[in-house]
Amino acid sequence: PLAAAYFNQETLQQRLLTLIEGARETWTYAIFWQSSVDVASGVSLLGWGDGYYKGCEEDKRKQKATNPAAAAEQDHRKRVLRELNSLISGGAGGSSPDETVEEEVTDTEWFFLVSMTQSFVNGSGLPGQAFFADAPNWIAGADRLALAPCERARQARELGLQTMVCVPVGTGVLELGSTDVIHQSLELMNKIRVLFNFNSFEIP
């Protein structure tokens, strides 16, 4: 019960932030996928628990969409961003439009936002596979992401990510993504174990 009490949104966000901001490598985001079981169907599900988006070099480059398809994609992303902003600020017109929703939405920002809508049923997708096998899955390199048996990994590659890592921790899966190629690191795996050891009664 004590461990459960510590496992709340605030400490989870703090753990994600500590991991990403304190890492030697440059990670773009971290997501915790929370496991649950649908009582009626018995289906095991991994859904959004929390996430931390740090960003990457892409965010610093102000690329203006130069072709019609890219411009249309940006329009679509900004429209979705406006709707989401409206949702969390209490309805349309609840907040004044600002650069938060009017500036370009980068590929990795978009990937992170789309992730909030995703879930993985009965061991599907990279997070589901890691959870089901109770083993980490570390994919480094765009070519390896392209070959991964997972639609999410392929989408990640298309949106500029080069490394995806899924590590089963406690009641879910920790996923890390980067636009850099990052090879497996024992140091990071140990850090994850310490930060996400939900059996521990100590707040990291």
Binding site: Q9, Q13, Q34, W48, G49, D50, G51, Y52, Y53, G55, D59, K60, K62, L84, N85, L87, I88, G90, G91, D98, E99, T100, E103, E109, F112, L113, M116
Partner: peptide, 29 residues
């Protein structure tokens, strides 16, 4: 709005806050 689960709502709020910080840091002035 009521249908948006709390975990996603809080994550979205944080995402927008951080995005604003990033954009402010990148602004020329």
């Amino acid at each position: 709005n009521e249908d948006l689960p709390m975990a996603r709502k809080k994550s979205l709020q944080r995402f927008f806050e951080k995005r604003k910080e990033r954009l402010t840091a990148l602004a020329p002035y």
